[in-house]
């Protein structure tokens, strides 16, 4: 069956992803030094989302998996993102 084919990610790609994750972690710490007011959470979450996508795509092989799994993860992401946005309808407009 198609789903049972294993895709092997080469070492170089894995190392590149690892370096990217390390750089993004440093970026998260660096950016926390600045006062971004209402954008603080948005920036932190954006960096975290990019990191999560990298991990999911390469380390968890989602990029090479069947479409149905990608759709499931995307739906999850949309729901999670919506939860954050709806929560911020409260925090951003609270008097």
């Amino acid at each position: 069956m198609d789903e049972q084919k294993h895709h092997i990610v080469d070492y170089l790609t894995n190392i590149k992803v690892w370096v990217a994750l390390a750089v993004l972690t440093i970026l998260t710490v660096w950016v926390s030094e600045f006062n971004l007011a209402t954008l603080t959470v948005a920036v932190a979450l954006s960096i975290a989302t990019i990191k999560a996508i990298l991990v999911l795509s390469y380390f968890m092989h989602l990029k090479f998996d069947s479409k149905i799994l990608i759709i499931m993860v995307l739906v999850t992401l949309v729901i999670f993102l919506s939860m954050i946005i709806f929560t911020f309808f409260d925090y951003l407009y609270r008097k």
Partner: peptide, 17 residues
């Protein structure tokens, strides 16, 4: 997933929310 705030109408949540 997106209706939970109706439990919190009197909790001090913002008007738009």
């Amino acid at each position: 997933y997106f209706v939970w705030g109706h439990h919190m109408f009197t909790s001090g949540m913002s008007g738009p929310a």
